[in-house]
Amino acid sequence: MKAPPFAYRRVASVAAASALLREHGDGARLIAGGQTLLATLGMRLSEPSLLIDIRGIAEMQGIAVTGGHLRIGALARHVDVERSALVAQHLPLLSLAAPHVAHAAIRNRGTFGGSIAFADPAAEWPACAVAADAALVLSDGTTSRTVEAADFFLGLYQTDLRPDELITAVRFPLPGRHRRFAFTELARRHGDYATVGLALAGDWVEGRLHDPRIVYFGVGGTPVRAVAAEAALAGGRAEPETLERAVAELGGELSPSGDLYTSAATKLHLAGVLLRRGIQSLIPGEGQT
């Protein structure tokens, strides 16, 4: 199982990567951690003529808080997110999700931006980005634009990324002090891609849930925000009847496809289970506010 031949170039700037993408068109692929790409090359599922190694682009590195945002450079590795004190402090959703991303050796190499750009529908980071209202910074080295994560994922492995663009960073607005997060995922074995997963966010103020985000993964071609379920919960106390109303709404807004081991109907059922459990862990227990 050996990869087909390809050329390899390292670049040090977004502009250089973008220029090579324009020059080589479909034949070129970006490589950062390569944790998905190299497996597909070994299987000869794709045969690029050129790999552009972007790991050396300085502006895509790092995790920092700037201008009211938590900025995660696209080249930050999963392990960097997992271990980041800034992330734990400001966006614990990502800290909760990180241990679910494959296994330690993969997390040491795979990148945050790479996972979002690849947009696997069962991956954790795209759903987290949507749930935390992230914006993606896209650039071709000359022009930069910002796209809401919610608008970025267009379909199965399809994104708003143009052929010569790179995700350079992901910007998360710093959540207010009432913002809470929860993350829950079912997989056949720990570390596998999710059967169904759920990223949750919401403000818990005086016993009521406001502005919730309910974002599923593994149930469609993209992360799926369950807007009607959010509406059912918004402003309420998340008591059992409300929660059941929200769960009932899922049938109308999720249309999962079955995968190898789980049927569409079961995925929908599991989405309801995860919502009940996720909300339980989102809202504080008795005596907390």
Binding site: L186, R188, T195, Y261, T262, S263, A265, T266, H269, L270
Partner: peptide
């Protein structure tokens, strides 16, 4: 005995 099979047994509507 997969989760799918268990759920289908417990929730007959999933088996349709």
């Amino acid at each position: 005995i997969t989760p799918e099979k268990i759920l289908r047994a417990l929730h007959p509507h999933l088996a349709d």
